[in-house]
Design a protein around this nucleic acid. Sequence first.
DNA 1: TGTTAACCGATTTTT
DNA 2: TCGGTTAACA
Length: 669
Amino acid sequence: MLAVTFTNKAAKEMQNRVAAALNQPVEGWWVGTFHSTGARILRNHVEAVGLKSNFAILDEDDQLRLIKRILRERGMDDKRCPPRGLLAVIQRWKDRGLEPGQVTAAEDTDFADGKARSLYGDYQDSLRRVNAVDFGDLLLLCLKLFREQPDILKRYQDKFKYILVDEYQDTNVAQYLWLRLLAQTRKNICCVGDDDQSIYSWRGAEVGNILRFENDFPGARVVRLERNYRSTPHILAAASGLIAHNSGRLGKTLWTELSSGEKVRVRGVWDGESEARTVGGEIESLHSKGEFLNGMAVLVRTGAQTREFEERLITLGVPYRVVGGLRFYERREIRDAVAYLRVIAQGADDLAFERIVNFPKRGLGPAALNAVHGLARSLGLPLIEAARKLVETDEMTPKPRGALAALVGDIKRWQSLSDGLGPSDLMEQVLNESGVIAHWEADKSPEAPGRLENLKELVAALEDFGGLTEFLEHVSLVMEMDKAAGDDKVTLMTLHGAKGLEYDTVFLAGWEEGLFPHQRVMGEMEGGGLEEERRLAYVGLTRAKRRAIILHAANRRIHGRWLSALPSRFISELPAEHMDISAESGLFGSKSSAPSHRRFKAAAYAPSERSPAPGERNGDPDGAFHAGQRIFHQKFGYGRVVTVEDDKLQIAFEKAGGKKVMGSFVKPA
DNA sequence: TGTTAACCGATTTTT
DNA sequence: TCGGTTAACA
């Protein structure tokens, strides 16, 4: 049996449930993520795909480093070809199962003057040269292996009698092809998914996979799971009514036997601060009635929105946790420490070597590194070997030469130590002797103590591993540290992060045109982006078991600018009979006098001339100016406010015409 | 080589 | 506004 999902968390859950159901451990079973399964297959056939044993799995940081190097070697301008953009293009190709040779010229037009395809080729060559793969390769190389070596494919087809897939709506083309090959002979494949919860198209997921399932696997039986065990009827009805505005769905009618509960609340507030106050107040009131904080979550569209809630919850003394952001193994100090281990475990890891060569500062800057690179390239050696040779010569000036010799010597010593010492002790010794600890101790910045703390935690975590190799595989694939999560805390996270989770009470913040749906998708001509935003709203609503509260602010600070905003169109798409809608006094008039949608679109987050922007931020909100308001100015006389931007007003004066003036020079007329 | 000042850009994010 | 990256200096 093969069972696959996307996240480590889900995979672990699956393993636990299988183990519990069968009452036996699942060691050695093929239950895991797509990527870990791919890695496992590749490890069994390294030579067949041009790798050596112990290949490294690169994360984004390493990938970018590699791409920057390629661009530099080809003398290309990273302005015209931003490394991140190129990486994204390559990843999308990999998501579609395309090797460099399979990308057609027609597809290679929009980026870097049509050089992306050949850069992709270079990138793959570089990966093979340093004996590394990226996450996309874990599937792509499997596909290549299956296509080129039918006997190997046959072995896996025979092995996996039954294939089970979770979250099928999130699969990309490569994953689809991978599954199709494996399921081809036995045709026992069972996929679970919800097309209305497809929110990852931007990273290559194809809703089409689930929509086309019956065609792709002829004879398939579709089972609709329409009974909902989570949410009350009002919440379910709100979510269903909203998602009905999407086209191209499989369609389903959710029902529940739960009793009706509260209506979904919609609250209009003045600004982000007021939004956080409202949510904070509600959380306190629920908590005082005996509800657990663990049952409450604030869901936002963008990561930056969590800050305002954090500040409010801190002042209220309400414990919270923020999900997302940098994970443990992505922190800088941890990545540096791990890079030391990578060099020790596998000297040929050039990317890790580059990372540590001048950290902590040893006086080995670009000049020294260039010399090493040059020799490495001409001799076809890994950097560390080249460095070893270089210090034997007089190519370098004495100072860097001594520093490099010391580093090379240290690494050699640590390598000889690594057999006798456990990974934890080795790490501790390396951190001390390399000067990493000293570096952070000397650092006066406020983050430094936390970084030292993290390094201590890393050393402790290493106790659980028998060997370096085992640990490094864990870091590249699993990338998680189980944190003790026993305390009662409110959860703050993005809507994306909330998929698959549930809470008694869910606060859905920032439902404003331009923020949600996000400005970026509104420019797209086809409605695909907007529909995905709507699915995101659907996911948010359906996280709630008993209570959902939607908030929207009239004014919000975006990139330091105060902009006015109108309620999200999604709010007007919710079925009114299941809603309880209200706003702070003086905002958006009453329910009935809400502005028409055409004005919404033109105005949302646009500090342009036509934007009716209420809101000047300093001081009391009620003293603020808003678009259309009649005012008086000492010098220019009477006029009407056209736009408001920070404390500056664009005014159409009756006599003086259009002028930009400071709000403090203007009085309401 | 290492430090500081301008500069750009800015959804969502797992593996 | 904020942070990360790069370009110009000491």
